[in-house]
Write a protein that binds this DNA or RNA. Sequence first.
DNA 1: CGTTTATCTAGAACAAGTTTCACTAACGCA
DNA 2: TGCGTTAGTGAAACTTGTTCTAGATAAACG
Lengths: 223, 223
Amino acid sequence: MHDVRLSPTRRRNTFEVGQMTAEVKPAALQLTERQEARRRRILHASARLASRGGFDAVQMREVAENSGVALGTLYRYFPSKVHLLVATMQDQLQHMHETLRKRPPTEEEPAARVAQTLMRAFRALQREPHLADAMVRALTFADRSVSPEVDTVSRLTTAIILDAMGLAEAPTPEQLSAVRVIEHTWHSALITWLSGRASIAQVKIDIETVCRLIDLTAPAPGR
Amino acid sequence: MHDVRLSPTRRRNTFEVGQMTAEVKPAALQLTERQEARRRRILHASARLASRGGFDAVQMREVAENSGVALGTLYRYFPSKVHLLVATMQDQLQHMHETLRKRPPTEEEPAARVAQTLMRAFRALQREPHLADAMVRALTFADRSVSPEVDTVSRLTTAIILDAMGLAEAPTPEQLSAVRVIEHTWHSALITWLSGRASIAQVKIDIETVCRLIDLTAPAPGR
DNA sequence: CGTTTATCTAGAACAAGTTTCACTAACGCA
DNA sequence: TGCGTTAGTGAAACTTGTTCTAGATAAACG
């Protein structure tokens, strides 16, 4: 009768934005091997369905079936569809982060580096527009009950951007503000693209535009 | 048997961003008086329910009951819950725009004027956080089928910002980019606030931060 | 006016997210 | 190894958005 939800719900890795390292592992409180495997199967099924038909195509019953797990079990691992998709996004972001670490941006200026990085991520999303749809829609639709998970995604994104700026260690408050604004723009621009209201070119422009903020907060004398 | 959906669906007021005036009336293709009244009752009920419990509290059956209309009729006027809420947002924005016209921002600098305007709007939303939740969640969750309506909201927002900048007439492409980025930040910051991941103060900072972009695109020599 | 046609109404029906329940399997530990 | 507890299964039930149907009203129009 102990309706204690499985890890993902209460995960709350308290760590500062700055000290984000490569190890942001799911960190669910000790899962057995079989459980870890189940969790992985679920995420995999979720991503697969999502890359077919986007948000709507991820149907909980089907995810359960496809991952060989009972519906109730699925809900024990991920207490809602949005939780599931946000976790899926965490997963994908992790990959992205690692990939980016291997091939850091080539540009000189921080602003250009960030823009380049985001455009790379954007191109990756373009390859799986449905998956992108599912993840981003879930992310912005998430209510308070998903805050911890959304926050994790946000921290990952922040880490990626800071990495691109070349200062994963000691960002100033001003720089953090700029990064937050960049993130806002990133998410919202993706949405306008996904809903067909903005072209790829326009998203590019928006990203480049917002990245100029970085210059404003550069360590240089610039106000 | 002519399942022609009512106006709101196919509304497609083609008008340029710049020439946005006060007359953006719903403009549904000729509704009779009774129909206009019904539409209004529906929107009113929607807003009332939303200001109670936010997105989830707006239940289509209840909206129908509260506005004295059959469920089928509700769906004829607004083909989905998201359509309904986006229309509700249009409605509210209209009011906001008029209010802002009456008392334009007092600041001198364009950037400060925009920031002041958005903070005013933000304070208005803070008075009805649940309503804000319903509208903003609907807006960002909207899929392609709602694009025209979302676009209308976007144009209204753009108009408000351009007004605040003091150039509703001839914005440069660069300025339009900045405005788009400001809008992105505005929506996304609202979401982080609504989901409890950012404080009011933080939203304020983000708005002020992004508004600096306006200086970068000023008619002045600034690059 | 009377008729034709488009709207509305009431209510059932359907779909997918979520919850619940009774039961079985796996795990942790003494 | 045996046993109590936690996790997982299967299936039904429940909720709320959405669709459908048949019949009643209102509008348009000759």
